[in-house]
């Protein structure tokens, strides 16, 4: 049992028992927010419109959650596991290359497709 002992457990998971977790929720590993998926908080989703994008990367710079993934100086994709759908990327985009789409609409469309199949 490491509770209260200060043992520097590097892994903290939601299925760990109270006595397996670090004392007081202390965190010893930097960047562990990556393992906490916040994407299911989202009610609207940013969707990239490739032909409008000029790869200025304003979205990448303004994203408060590092959810815009760029590669070799170009927009690559959104990280939907972490994107909370704040819409800042769409707001700052000078080319309107990002649409914010309702997750409900996406769900409905998926359901409709299922019915057709």
């Amino acid at each position: 049992m490491n509770f209260g002992s200060g043992t520097r457990t590097r892994v903290v998971k939601a299925d760990m028992k109270w006595y397996e977790l670090t004392k007081a929720g202390n965190i010893y590993e930097p960047g562990n927010a990556n393992s906490y998926e916040t994407g299911d908080w989202r009610s609207i989703r940013p969707v990239w419109i490739e032909d409008r994008c000029i790869h200025c990367l304003f979205c990448w710079r303004y994203c408060p959650d590092a959810s815009v993934i760029a590669k070799d100086g170009k927009f690559e994709k959104f990280d939907y596991k972490h994107c909370k759908g704040c819409g800042i990327c769409a707001k700052v985009c000078p080319r309107n290359a990002i649409d914010m789409i309702s997750e409900d609409e996406i769900e409905k469309a998926k359901e409709a497709n299922k019915d057709e199949n």
């Binding site: 209260g4 109270w18 006595y19 977790l21 929720g25």
Partner: peptide, 8 residues
């Protein structure tokens, strides 16, 4: 996590 930390 909150509940587990209270138990601690």
């Amino acid at each position: 996590f909150y509940f587990e930390h209270k138990r601690q």
